[in-house]
Structure formats: C-alpha cells, structure tokens
Design a protein around this nucleic acid. Structure first.
Length: 877
DNA sequence: TTGCGGCCT
DNA sequence: GCCTAAGGCCGCAAC
C-alpha cells in the first residue's frame, strides 16, 4: 500500500527548538530547530519508508477561527527570535530536498493536515501524520496514524496512535477527543472551554453521554452539581469551543499523490545546505546513505515446536552458562529468550503446546541449575517458583553495581557499556508495542528483540562477574544484591492494606479547607489567580501587593516555604497561602495520589527499585511509600489509613542514628566511639563534648545546634550549608565545624581521607565494597568540585547504612518464611522495617527484628533499634 | 519536558 | 565570588 507521511511543520520545528540544545553555525545563524527537524525527518523516513511526503505550515494571515472568536487573536504566542529566524531556513532546506510545502490562507496547518490525510485515506493510502501537538489525535483513523516524536538528550522517541491507542490513553475515541477538549478548554490554544470543568470531569461526561450534544440532551443527569450549573450557564462557550477545537477536514486544498512523491532527497542543493549549516552528522549521512548497515552477525531462531523447545531446554540445562529471560508483561507470558553460545539466540514463543505454564515450568527448572544469567529477575518472579536457595544472576543489577550513576540498565545499555556491541533498543524494535502485540504484529522485530536480549544476558555472564570480582564487589553482589531481589519482590507482592473510605474522607476534609482558603486568599489579595502557580503567586505577592523579598529563582520570584515563612508574621495572607499549600499538597499527593494505587485486593503494591540511587539505597515508586508525612500532625494522620489485616498488628523497627554510628565505626575516632557506646541521646552528647558543657546542662538550643552539625557532617560538611540551616553567619558555622573536628579529630582525618582517596581513585566505597564514582572532583568549576567533595564524604556513610539494612531485610524476610511464620516484611524506609505481624507471633517477630537488625553488621558501636507496635502505621511509629 | 515546591530518611 | 548541605519521588504549571 502507498504510504504518505504528513508533517506539521511549525509544531515539529517548535519541538526541535526546545528539545535540541542551542546551535549556531559560524555565520551566527541559529540552527538547532532545523537540525532537530531533520533528525526527526530522517528517523521517520527510515522507519516508515514512505513513498510520499509533505510538510504543512501555518501562514501569518488570520484564519476562520479568528472570525469566529476575537480572543483567538491572542492565541499565537510570540515566537522567540531564535526560532523565528529558522522558519524560512527550514522551508529552504525542504525545498532543496524536493519536499513539497503545503500552506493555505485562512487555514492552519492542522486543517491542511486533516484535509489531506482524510483525502489520502479515501484514496486508499496509508497515512502517518507527524506533529508535536496532541490535538491532532482527533484525526487518528483506521489508516491514519498520528506520530508524536519526543526529543530529549539527543535521542528521539516516537509515540504513535491509531484510534485504539487514543482510546487506551484517553479513554475516548478520536472524534470524542474534540468534545472533551471543548468542555475542558485549552489555555495554550486559547480555547475557553466550560469553567470549572477539568480533564477528569470532561472525560467522564463524554464517556457517559457520547458528545457535547449528548451532554446537553441529558443535562439534568449531569452529576457534579457544579459542572451542571456551569454547563447551563455557558452553553454558548461549549459550542464555540467545539468549533475552535475541531480540525477542518474539508479545507479547500487539492491533493494529488503525485505532488508528494519522494524523489532523491540527497540532492546537491541539500548537501550544500547541510554543509553551510555545519550539520556534520547529516553530511555523513548524505555521504554514505547508500551504504547498507552491516548485517548483524548473530543468528536468531524462532522456536514454535514442542520437540525443538524440549531439546533446547535439555541442552541449556546441561550447558555451562545460559542467558535466559522469561518474556512476561502484566499477567501474561509471551515467550522465552534463550542463548547458549555467542552466535545463536532463540525465541521460544508461547504457541500451541508451548503454553505459558509450560514455559514457566521449564524456566523455573532451568533457573534452578544456578548457571543462568538474566535481566530483570524481579519482574519475572511472579511466574517462577524460586526462592532464597536459588541463585540467578541478574546482569542489570551487576551493571548497577559497576556504575550506579546510569539511568537505565537495559540490554542495549549493557551491550554498549560492557560488550562492545551496538544493539537496537526495545523502542527501536518494538516501538511502544507490548510483547503480546509485537509478537502478533511485528514477529520479526520481536524475534530480533528477544535475540538481542538473550544474547546480551549470555554475554554479560562472561564479563560482568569478572569485573565485579576485579573491583571487589563479588560478595556484595552474591550475598546482598542478588538475595535482595527476593526480599523486594516479596514486599511488592505483599503490599500494604489501606482503608479506602478513610482516605477519601480525609481528602474531603482537606478539599473543604482548600475551598475556604482559596476564597480567603482571593479576597485578601484582590485577584482570582491560581495559587498553585508559583509564577502567578509571585506576581501577585511581590508586584501587585508589593511585598519585599525580591527575585531568587531563574524564572521569577521564589515563593518557597522558607521565603514565605519570613513574610508570614507581617502579612496574614502569606500564612493562608502556606496553609493552602499544605492542604493542597496533602490532598493531591497523598489523599488522591495514594487512592489511585489501591488495588482490587484493597492493598497498595508499591514498586521497590534496586538500580536507581547513586549510593545503594532502594527507592520506592508508584506510589512512593518512603515519603509518607510524619513531621506535622495533619500529615502524619495519613498513616492511620495504613493498617494490618485481621488478626495482625504492625511492628515497626528503625535503626537509631545509623549513619552517625557508621561514621563512628568507619572513622575509628575513639572519642566518638566511646561516646556512642553509652549514649542514649547522641545529639545531646555531641553538644556536651563539642561545647564543653556537662551532659545534664545541655540546653535544647545547644542540642539543636549539635544535631545540625551532626547532619552536616553526614552530608559532607560545608560552612555555607550549616549557616543556612541554623540561620547563623558563615563564620559562626565555621567555628562550630572547627570545634567539632577538634573534639573528634579522627572524623576530620577520615573525611579528608575520603576526599583524597576519591580524587586519586575516582570513586569512594562503602564498608561492603559498594562503589560510587565521583567524576565531579576533576571539575574546574568550584561548585561542581565542592559537590564532588560532599559526595565523597556522604556516599560511604549513606551507602554503608544502606548495605546494612539490606542485609537485615534479607535475613528478616528469610527467617519469617523459614520459621514458618505468617508475618511478613512489607516496607523498608531507609532505616526502618515494617512487618505485618500475626498477633500470636508478635514476640517471635520482635526477637527476629531485633536480632537481625542489630547483628547485620559488627560495628565498633552498637546498632540500636527502636521498635513499636500498633493497629496502624501511625501508632506503630 | 523542565522548574518549582514539598514530602520522606 | 561561587550562592550547594546528602539521597530520593511526585504534582502542578508553563514550556
């Protein structure tokens, strides 16, 4: 079928302008947008291989929308000059490449795209419309695909939408997309919408009634009374917005495919432009575009036959090392990738006798041999029957230990960073298809994906263990990180029960307060603005009302809490704003945010990530359960909705000052060690020794200062930071620091040694050998170098504490299971473990927690634990 | 997407 | 003078 690609010129140019860092050629011309546009264009040509191509641009002249709606004139945002000057340049380059440019007076590019796309579809063509603007999704059709490229950090990812994709993401059909937009409006397009109807309400209404007309036909049934009232009052607005939002598909544009047939893009004129604009990588492309990419030397095989699969598993079981990944997403197994040598890789597809159950069983058997290297074991565990006794090597976790500073550890990352191989990424091969979709729709790409995945897992096994051993991290890997995968998986599976009704009642109370505060703030400031917008808030406070407290951020006035708190005593409205912020935060992030994650089992199953942090801590996402409020009473109350199941209580155990104890141990400072061996109150004893006062005469203020110094030491002390924290002069802060170091000279020697060591070796290490590279120390920039010094001081301390609690987690989780208990570890919050404990097992679990946490490491000071129980998380802290 | 602001250890 | 205390995640606004 004939393929046509249509590009929304201004939109893509705009995307490229913001996505690509500033570039100028030697004439001083800005070129970044043109460069980004061309990169997107070439990527499209490679992926789509279209026979036809055209680009649509807006004209300056007013369009039919302006005659409909005066305010539409305000729509067009002023284009930055640096972008504006690239528009004619872009058109010239396209012309040089023989690519047609479509424009029409009185219409926007959207309308031209809509009209041409529908005409081409009617003529039997397969159309791809490329834009950065999601409004175009309304054009999505059986043979019209909407492509939305995203450029960041030099790489471009393309998201594509057929009608079913639109439905999956927005729930509504492409046509209804217009209806939703008409109701909710769009500030960036100056489409007014109906007041007080947001995205959620609009989507719900359209889902319920089908269209804007449908909504008005059933106005009496419309649910939130506020929305109903607003709809009644603003029917004109809704109808106008619909007309503005709807893209015209019958603009007076002629289209015959021949106008858009792609000829030779690599013309001499185009080459000259690339040269003048100094696009070196594109010049190279022009130079060798004929050269085919060297075909991959690997052999990938698809296995669909039971006997063949049996033989392959048999061989894998007996081989010295196997690369294997169970391809599973959501609840579904799609296949298995296997690799037994450096040449061949296999995709065993779920098909016929090769059922999901069969694959799960064979893979379990294979993984139990103890010679399997995989990638992302935790996400495969729901389908496998494995436990602490089974060692499965996870290459992603190994790669994380070797360099914890990277964002991702996918197979293509491993290929590049460790195997000297360039592998196409999942996004390159499968776009955004799921495994099941890819296997069905793009079987060759899926085979390739599985092949590279298996190959990289296998090859990683040949190299990563050697690297770990060479860097002294083999034990860390085998004894801590690999078993930890099971502990994290168990916590994810277990989840934590949340009282849904109580949570939403809590949210309702907050919302009432928010409404009241909002009105009061509007009255007191004399303008109805969005209090959530730091920009608007800054303007109202510091310009309209003239409060003192000038600029602080890059983009405007700082309205951060510490700034506002200084103003609160003098201006009552500022306190209201701070209160509003508190309520709004608690409602959006916690009441509503957490509510969205309660599963059908009434529990929240957060994800615990093992390869995110630079220091070795784990992180929690979807939702983050490691930042549930505790400091303020109002927020702390949220913890009451986290409850144990019937017949259970919560037992919560946390390490007392673990980082300071780690510091005492690692530094070996004898005075600090002696102090912590006996101390009940570590900050008080620090105050007593540093400020030379008897322990029983330490005032709360002195203790507070000592506590701040202790924090400073752990964070990588700086006089500036300490002075900010205590609101004292930098000189005074420096005096505190010097006094501290005089008192504990071993700490000073230790921290200086860490920095010197890091400078020499390029990394720092924890007690258990975990490394963190510190490249910033080599920087010529003072700020960056200082940052590197703080990293060098903090990471070994924070990281060692992370190692210790990981050891404790593994042992606690193992013992609960191996001793046949029903109690389960369900959360870790950096220095805290939460166990959902069967009432009759309480004493035993207390003993397990206490023993395993204290014994996790043998330090020169005791590891002390505070433990509480309760019928919810609030009580158990 | 980025920046701001805010919650945790 | 630099204008940073360490490590995270997430909602919102504006781009």
């Amino acid at each position: 079928m004939e393929k046509l690609v249509l590009i929304d010129g201004h939109s893509i140019l705009n995307r490229a302008f913001y996505g690509v860092p500033g570039l100028t050629n030697s004439e001083g011309l800005h070129t970044n947008a043109v460069y980004g546009f061309l990169n997107i264009l070439f990527k499209l040509l490679e992926e789509e291989k279209p026979g036809y191509l055209a680009v649509a641009f807006d004209l300056k002249a007013p369009t039919f929308r302006h005659t409909m709606y005066d305010a539409y004139k305000g729509t067009r945002k002023p284009m930055p000059e640096e972008l504006h000057e690239q528009v004619p340049l872009m058109k010239e380059v396209l012309t040089a490449m023989g690519i047609p440019i479509f424009t029409r007076e009185g219409y926007e590019a959207d309308d031209i795209l809509g009209t041409v796309a529908k005409k081409a579809q009617a003529a039997g063509m397969e159309v791809t419309v490329v834009s950065g603007d999601r409004d175009l999704l309304q054009l999505s059709d059986a043979h019209i695909k909407i492509s939305i490229p995203k450029t960041s950090r030099g790489t471009t990812e393309v998201h594509t939408y057929y009608p079913e994709d639109v439905k999956r993401e927005y729930q509504v059909t492409p046509e209804q997309f217009i209806d939703v937009k008409a109701l909710m409006g769009d500030t960036s397009d100056n489409i007014p919408g109906v007041p007080s109807i947001g995205e959620k309400t609009a989507t719900n209404l359209i889902l319920q009634f089908g269209s804007v007309n449908g909504v008005y036909e059933h106005l009496s049934e419309v649910k939130p009374p506020r929305a109903k009232k607003s709809l009644e009052e603003h029917r004109d607005l809704a109808e106008l917005s619909y007309k503005l939002a709807k893209i015209c598909i019958d603009a007076p544009v002629e289209f015959s495919p021949e106008d858009a047939r792609i000829g030779d893009l690599y013309t001499k004129e185009a080459y000259e432009y690339m040269s003048r604009l100094e696009f070196k990588s594109l010049l190279a492309r022009f130079g060798d575009h004929v050269k085919k990419e060297a075909a991959a030397a690997l052999d990938f095989h698809a296995v669909t036959d039971l006997a063949v699969a049996e033989a392959l598993f048999q061989k894998a079981m007996g081989s010295e090392r196997t690369g294997a990944v169970l391809l599973a997403e959501g609840p579904e197994i799609s296949g298995a990738a296997l690799c037994l040598d450096g040449q061949n890789a296999y995709l065993i597809q779920k098909e016929g006798f090769l059922t999901g159950e069969y694959l799960a069983e064979k893979m379990t058997e294979l993984y139990r041999t103890g010679h399997v290297w995989t990638l992302g074991l935790k996400s495969q565990l729901p389908f496998l029957d494995l436990g602490y006794g089974d060692t499965v090597y996870d290459a992603a976790v190994a790669a994380y230990l070797l360099n914890p500073l990277k964002d991702t550890y996918d197979y293509d990352d491993l290929a590049r960073d460790h195997l000297g191989l360039t592998a196409p990424s999942r996004a390159d091969l499968l776009k955004k298809l799921t495994y099941a979709e890819a296997m069905d729709q793009e079987p060759e790409a899926f085979l390739s994906f599985a092949g590279f995945l298996g190959h990289c897992a296998y090859q990683s096994g040949g190299i990563l263990m050697e690297k770990l051993e060479a860097e002294g991290m083999k034990d860390l890997y085998l004894e801590i990180e690999l078993p930890l995968i099971y502990a994290l998986y168990h916590m994810e599976e277990e989840g934590i029960a949340v009282k849904r009704e109580e949570l939403s009642a809590y949210g309702e109370k907050l919302k009432q307060q928010i409404t009241v505060l909002e009105q009061e703030i509007w009255d007191m400031t004399g303008s109805q603005f969005n209090i959530n917008s730091p920009k608007q808030l800054g303007e109202v406070l510091f310009e309209k009302m003239g409060l003192k407290g000038g600029k602080k951020t890059k983009t405007g006035y700082s309205t951060a809490a510490d700034v506002l708190e200084k103003l609160a005593p003098d201006y009552p409205v500022v306190q209201k704003i701070l209160d509003y912020r508190t309520y709004a935060k608690l409602n959006s992030t916690y009441a509503e945010g957490l509510g969205n994650f309660i599963g059908p089992d009434g529990r929240i199953h957060s994800r615990f990530n093992q390869t995110i942090t630079a220091t070795g801590r784990i992180s929690s996402t979807e939702p983050n359960l490691q930042n549930i409020p505790i400091r303020m009473e109002l927020g702390r109350a949220i913890r009451k909705v986290f409850v144990p199941r019937d017949g259970f209580v919560f037992l919560d155990a946390d390490y007392s000052q673990i980082e300071l104890r780690v510091l005492a141990h690692m530094s070996g400072d004898s005075r600090l060690i002696e102090a912590y061996r006996s101390a009940q109150d570590i900050h008080a004893i620090t105050a007593s020794q540093v400020f030379h006062i008897p322990l029983d005469q330490v005032t709360p203020l002195k203790r507070r200062n000592a506590k701040a110094v202790n924090f400073g030491i752990v964070y990588g002390i700086s006089a500036f930071g300490l002075s900010e924290d205590l609101s004292i002069s930098r000189k005074e802060a420096l005096e505190y620091i010097n006094q501290y170091f005089e008192t504990y000279p071993g700490v000073k020697t230790f921290l200086d040694g860490l920095v010197a060591d890091a400078r020499e070796k390029g990394f720092v290490s924890t007690m258990f050998g975990r490394r963190r590279p510190v490249p910033e120390l080599g920087s010529a920039n003072f700020m960056q170098r200082s940052f590197g010094e703080r990293v060098a001081m903090n990471s070994p301390i924070q990281g060692t504490a992370a190692d210790i609690i990981k050891i404790a987690m593994i042992r606690v989780d193992r013992r609960l299971r191996e001793e046949g208990l029903e109690s389960r570890l369900i959360l870790q919050v950096h220095d805290e473990l939460l166990v959902e404990t069967a009432v009759r097992e309480k004493a035993q679990v207390e003993r397990i927690l206490s023993e395993e946490m204290s014994r996790a490491a043998a330090l020169k000071v005791p590891l002390e634990i505070d433990m509480h129980d309760g019928k919810n998380w609030f009580e158990a802290k």
